[in-house]
């Protein structure tokens, strides 16, 4: 195998170790590709170590997260209230719509009468 071909599979080899014998054979006698492999190994080692380095969140975030049950419960209470009283709300909306349409028609008629 040529160096270019081997280098194409080095990331997967370094991370998962899944390459065939020809690549291993090439690596055993090519110092350049072995050095390249070492760079990938260093990179993967560092990437894995990132998991252990948490970044400090904004100070207010904890309180916002801790308040989620309270906020969520309030939303839940409001939702339950709306669901339980949906007929009343629907009636209210229907009455308001009819009223608004009626008022608009009345105004239009009045405007027409005034012009006539």
């Amino acid at each position: 195998m040529k160096c270019d071909e081997v280098r194409e599979v080095l990331p997967a080899y370094s991370h998962d170790g899944d390459v065939g014998l020809p690549v291993r054979r090439h690596l055993s006698r090519c110092p350049d590709c072995t050095s390249e492999l070492a760079l990938y190994e260093a990179m993967f080692g560092s990437l894995a170590s990132l998991k252990t380095h948490a970044v400090e969140p904004p100070p207010e975030l904890f309180h916002q997260l801790a308040a989620i049950p309270y906020r969520s419960n309030r939303i839940e209470v409001a939702r339950t209230h709306v669901v339980r009283n949906k007929n009343k709300y629907a009636t209210g909306v229907a009455v308001a719509t009819v009223g608004a349409v009626g008022a608009a028609l009345w105004r239009a008629r009045r405007a027409r009468t005034a012009t006539a």
Binding site: K51, A54, V55
Partner: peptide, 9 residues
């Protein structure tokens, strides 16, 4: 940063 103890993330 706060390094955690676990290596598995």
């Amino acid at each position: 940063r706060r390094p955690s103890d676990h290596r598995d993330g």
